[in-house]
Write a protein that binds this DNA or RNA. Structure first.
Length: 283
DNA sequence: CACCATGTTCCTTG
DNA sequence: CCAAGGAACATGGT
């Protein structure tokens, strides 16, 4: 999926577009993405509701709505899974092949499209309660981070994907953060020192923030799939091709490390690819 | 045909 | 009950 930075960039893009818009009708093409909400429940809740705001928690999008009929506010939770996209399009535009849910906003459609249907658009917001702290939570101190790492013997790379540890880190930025911190992805989580925990938390924050900054600066295309594999969203027509230099280790197996020139290695941990520099990231 | 993919959840095992 | 490992979900690209 889109990890925290991509979701944050999307939220900033959608917020001004959705605010104040009213949902006229709801079309569910793939029931699976709603569960445990039923299509009927979704229609009943959303028809006539107005978008008040859009926020992010971890990799989840939170749509805040107001229902005039019921006279109360409620939330809709979105998750892009591995291949989800959410965007507004003119009604005359053809719907994408894998459109899962379409919200009729009057003059436009709000489309949730997802090739593999791993994502969610649901009234069940309970997933958010299981998340760990946001990376920038001021109360999330390196000591607390280390205390949590101490509880696991898993490799630190695998542990970083645990959303109850820190919310929002995914497979790409886990490798990027460890490279930035100079820590081996194979190091057991419970063998990380105080200094290393501090470094790793800073690296996570830096790597995510840089990605958000990059994504919010550039003209992006939220509808198309041509993302270069380097930033989840595609480039808008005429936008600079600077994506190719954004990631330092992810998907760079065999290529030289930007610091020492050693060949970047790819290994498999918990059935996911991990990339690292064997020279700069020793055990 | 084989393997790979930005994620999460469920099931099994110990 | 818990941690850890692996399969499953579903589709497409190389």
């Amino acid at each position: 999926m889109p990890e925290l930075p991509e979701v944050e960039v999307l939220v900033r893009h959608l917020r001004p577009q959705l605010r104040g818009k009213i949902i006229r009708a709801v079309h569910v093409r793939r029931t699976k993405v709603l569960q445990p909400t039923t299509p009927r429940e979704l229609q009943r809740a959303l028809a006539g509701a107005k978008f008040k705001n859009v926020t992010r928690r971890g990799k989840h999008l939170l749509f805040e709505l107001r229902s005039p009929a019921a006279g109360k506010d409620f939330q809709l939770l979105g998750h892009l899974g591995m291949t989800g996209r959410m965007f507004l399009a003119r009604k005359k535009e053809p719907l994408p092949k894998h459109a899962a849910v379409i919200l009729d906003l009057g003059t436009e459609h709000f489309i949730y499209e997802d090739t593999r249907y791993f994502g969610r658009l649901t009234l069940d917001t309970s997933a958010v309660e299981k998340l760990g702290p946001e990376p920038w939570d001021a109360a999330f101190l390196p000591e607390e981070f280390r205390r949590q790492l101490k509880k696991s013997r898993q490799p630190v790379k695998v542990k970083l994907l645990d959303q109850s540890l820190v919310a929002g880190v995914g497979n790409i930025y886990a490798s990027e953060a460890l490279f930035r911190a100079g820590l081996s992805p194979r190091r057991a989580a419970n063998r990380i020192s105080r200094a290393e925990a501090r470094k790793l938390l800073s690296a996570i924050r830096a790597v995510l923030q840089e990605a958000i900054d990059g994504g919010s600066t550039l003209p992006l295309n939220f509808q198309t799939g041509e993302s270069d594999g380097l930033f989840y969203f595609g480039r808008a027509a005429g936008a600079p091709d600077y994506f190719s230099e954004r990631l330092n280790v992810y998907d760079r197996a065999g290529k030289p490390c930007i610091h020492c020139g050693a060949a970047i290695r790819r290994i498999v941990q918990a059935a996911r690819s991990t990339f690292f520099c064997p020279h700069c990231q020793k055990r």
